[in-house]
């Protein structure tokens, strides 16, 4: 096969892009396998050192935080629960509201859709004080419900589901009706299986969104047992030893690497459907 110059250029650009993504991760990983002292004196590393097991073991099991009660493992679990809850509920609620908007032609469907769409302009950060007030009045601070609930509505996902449902031919609904399907069974038996690639794609986006939340859990949680990974990254190895203690750089790198694993797993697990959902609509 003849290689064209344009292809070579394209590949060079792509390889550069890949390096740009991969190298920092590799450096973090390699650095996480050395002694903190080595990194402080010699800078970040490109090769694997001999402290890998020790560092990771320490990160996962050491109790940190102000009162030194929470472990990184606990924070991973918290983040995972929060992200899972947010992603699942976001997908479910968006799919159902899009279903209502597309198939139940009540008069206000269009205005309501635009109202939902406008909420894109009001992200959580903007409405964080009222949201906090509501959640705290409900007594939901320091709970998973409080972490998850204010984030479960999604205009973006509603929009995508709505656009997808609009492409489904009316005959399918009519045919299903004649076959005895009611509103609920049409949703479960038809729309959900037909949009499963889309559900997977949305789930991944929303999972990563939930996983990387910082401000909301920071405000919401005072009890360390509800801390999340992203909060921990800021807090856990900062000055936990007053005075002369060395910054524990190697452990931090290990923590960063570990914190990447759950979203990566979700992507790897759902990748097949995810890509399908982005590039094609299954007819």
């Amino acid at each position: 096969m003849k290689i064209k110059p344009l292809q070579i250029i394209a590949h060079i650009i792509l390889i550069l892009g890949v390096l740009l993504m991969v190298v920092p991760i590799w450096i973090s990983f390699a650095s996480s396998s050395h002694d903190s002292v080595t990194i402080l004196t010699e800078g970040m590393k490109f090769h694997i050192g001999d402290q890998l097991a020790r560092n990771y073991n320490e990160v996962l099991n050491e109790k940190g935080g102000w009162s030194e009660e929470v472990t990184a493992a606990k924070m991973f679990i918290n983040s995972f629960i929060m992200a899972l809850g947010i992603a699942t509920l976001k997908v479910a609620i968006s799919a159902m509201s899009a279903y209502a908007l597309v198939y139940y032609r009540f008069k206000l469907a269009v205005p309501i859709f635009w109202l939902i769409f406008i909420t894109l302009l009001v992200p959580l950060e903007v409405r964080i004080f009222p949201s906090y007030k509501i959640v705290s009045d409900l007594g939901l601070t320091n709970s998973y419900t409080g972490l998850i609930l204010p984030l479960v509505a999604s205009a973006t996902a509603t929009f995508f589901f709505r656009q997808f449902y609009k492409t489904i031919p009316d005959e399918l609904l009519e045919s299903a009706k004649l076959d005895g399907a009611n509103g609920w069974s049409f949703f479960i038996d038809f729309l959900v299986p037909l949009s499963k690639t889309m559900i997977a794609a949305m789930f991944i986006f929303m999972f990563v969104y939930g996983y990387s939340q910082y401000l909301w859990p920071l405000i919401m949680t005072t009890a360390e047992e509800y801390w999340t990974v992203v909060m921990g990254m800021k807090i856990i190895y900062t000055e936990s030893y007053e005075g002369v203690a060395l910054p524990r750089t190697a452990e931090r790198f290990a923590y960063i690497i570990l914190s990447m694993i759950p979203p990566v797993l979700v992507v790897v697990f759902l990748q097949k459907w995810f890509i399908k959902g982005l590039i094609q609509t299954e007819k």
Partner: peptide, 8 residues
């Protein structure tokens, strides 16, 4: 007319 078979 277009059969409206259930594609999935």
């Amino acid at each position: 007319q277009n059969y409206a078979l259930y594609p999935h």
